[in-house]
Nucleic acid binder design. Structure first.
Lengths: 248, 248
DNA sequence: CCGCATTTGTTCGTATGTATT
DNA sequence: TAATACATACGAACAAATGCG
């Protein structure tokens, strides 16, 4: 009914965090200490802590302790001309990234379809991580035609922007065609790379880039930390002001 | 290490569901029976079941049992002309809805801003639930200027479509201005209304409708079951074909 | 309407494993 | 190596919700 012992503890703990009794980065008292503090068993304490960890308010590290999380928030604007770097820079954040894996593989059916290639055609398969102010915010699986962009992986690994690599191969301008977005629970590996709790949701964003002629040139499926990012889509040309609030 | 006992049980259970040993709607064996079946304690069983419930594969009901869930999936297209009913009908689903609450209140600051009204101006505050084939898919908190649409709540309660109510007040056409979307864990009340697990994520979609002159006429903040709905945004005018796959 | 059996929910105790310092 | 702290696991008891006679 919302007043079970572990829920009471969860709420009291949450309030202590919100009110500043525990500040971001602080280490919480140990579990035995919390047991005494709240007059409860370790099971109840662990359950309350687990619930707050799922909400992103706490981060638990085995052998070290439990810490209060600080949650920045990024508002990522999506439109026809969306560019990762520009988007972050407009919010005063330093865009960054690192390459996790890169290989050339035969295109799976759905990728071939998205890129308008023959199934099995050689494509780059890149796994990248996006950072904002050195905090991981996304993991992107990207696909590009290997014949059209032979050196894509090398250039990307060297830190070159996607826009610049496109430009080097004659794509002077490009657009985002459609974007599909949904949420699911993070997988273990994703949670690790995003440095977030495994039970926290992630936003999965699938999109295809097309060149000026409308031909698809790249496809990506990115996993975003739902705790750190929200997306805004503008469907009205004149840029009227918006409310950018959240969780209110 | 990914092969703890409860994780093994979770995976074995998941496989049984995927392979059809347990079919959607079936009741699982009771916890003591599962203990014997997997040779584990009740803690491990409950943890495995809880994990699958969070993923939406199982639904647990106190006093009745644990059931295998069936998960339909809706692809909701968002654009300038998005309409709830039309959207669902295009996918062969029966749109529906019920009103949970309706009142006239002074506009809070952010609503007044979104609707271009004075703070405190009288606005309708409607809480509605959206259904697809009688399955709950969204809970929407909507706001409309009470002066401009005096009978909005009554008409809505009577089942009239938003478009028709707009039209009855001289709004012959309207558009969706911007859409903001993010994910978070469902709150208890939301989970109950959406008939989904409290730990499952929901997608929160904030949008503002504007009339032909660009004046805001309605604002809504809807919570969508992330397990049943994905969103697609088209940012490329020509309707090129898309891949509608997911979780692949 | 009541009482009982069934089934899941919560809590405690206790022991052992694993990661960090 | 030892101490600390979180992770996993088993057993047991009682509470709460449901369904049935």
């Amino acid at each position: 009914m919302g007043r079970e012992n572990w829920q009471m503890i969860r709420d009291r703990l949450s309030e202590k965090i919100a009110s500043g009794s525990f500040s971001p980065g602080d280490r919480l008292p140990t579990e035995p200490e919390l047991c005494q503090l709240f007059g409860a068993g370790r099971h109840s304490i662990r359950r309350a802590v687990a619930a707050l960890a799922v909400e992103g308010k706490l981060r638990v590290e085995q052998g070290r302790g439990t810490f209060v999380e600080s949650a920045p928030l990024i508002n990522y604007h999506i439109g026809r001309r969306t560019r990762f770097r520009q988007n972050l820079q407009e919010q005063g954040l330093a865009p960054g990234g690192d390459q996790i894996a890169a290989e050339i593989v035969p295109a799976p059916a759905r990728i071939a379809l998205a890129l308008a290639l023959e199934e099995g055609a050689a494509v780059h398969r890149l796994l990248n991580r996006g950072l904002a102010d050195d905090v991981p915010i996304s993991i992107g699986l990207s696909w590009y035609c290997a014949a059209r962009f032979p050196d894509f992986a090398e250039r990307r690994a060297a830190g070159e922007a996607v826009s610049d690599i496109y430009a080097a191969h004659g794509v002077t301008d490009y657009f985002r065609r459609s974007t599909t977005i949904f949420a699911r629970r993070a997988e273990e590996e994703e949670a690790r790379l995003l440095a977030q709790h495994p039970l926290l949701p992630v936003l999965v964003v699938q999109k295809t880039d097309v060149d000026e002629a409308g031909r698809p040139i790249g496809h990506s499926e990115a996993v975003w930390s739902a705790d750190r990012v929200q997306f805004t889509f503008d469907t009205d040309p004149p840029g009227a002001e918006r409310t950018d609030d959240r969780r209110s």
